[in-house]
Every structure is written in C-alpha cells, then in structure tokens.
C-alpha cells in the first residue's frame, strides 16, 4: 500500500467518526480539540471507532496507542506515521 498522506489520514479519521456520529460537526471540532467529549463518543463508540480505523487502514491499533487518538490531528499523525 502506498504511504498514506496526513491529509488522507485526517479524512479517514473524520469518515470513521461520521460512521458513529453521522452529523459530527467538524467545523466546531478542530484538529487540536478532544473530539470524544465534544461529540459524545462513549467507551463503546470509541472501541467501534478504533475497529473501523484498524479495518480501513490495515493497521494494528493497540490499547497503548489510544492516547495518540485523543485529537483529530494526533490521530491523523499517528495513522500516517504508522503507515509509512
């Protein structure tokens, strides 16, 4: 697979969140905001989100990686970095 650009990674994260919160307003949640609180993503939602991200990127995402998924920007950085 070609290396994922950060922009692509950012879109993957947004799309995955939209699967769970279809009306997620990304104009109100910036790259540095903690999206879980803003979008009311609970623990079960978050587990689903991680599964979606793993499925769509083919990456393995462990519990230890969760702190790197705190903001949209962090999550995009993490996915792009892992993929390269």
């Amino acid at each position: 697979m070609n290396a994922m650009t950060r922009t692509t990674a950012y879109e993957i994260v947004q799309d995955a969140i939209r699967e769970i919160v279809p009306d997620a307003d990304f104009s109100a949640v910036g790259p540095d905001d903690k999206y879980r609180e803003a979008l009311e993503i609970d623990s079960l939602d978050f587990e689903s989100l991680v599964e979606l991200l793993a499925e769509r990127t083919g990456l393995r995402i462990d519990e230890d990686d969760y702190p790197r998924l705190t903001t949209l920007g962090d999550a995009a950085d993490f996915l792009a970095e892992r993929q390269s």
Binding site: V21, P22, I41
Partner: peptide, 15 residues
C-alpha cells in the same frame, strides 16, 4: 440510516 442514527443521538444521547 445515518440520518436516523444522528437524529436519535441528538435526542436520546449516546447511551
């Protein structure tokens, strides 16, 4: 389907 999920979340909350 997505619209209904969003609609329900707004009213009922995620839980």
């Amino acid at each position: 389907r997505r619209e209904l999920i969003a609609f329900a979340r707004q009213r009922l909350g995620p839980a």
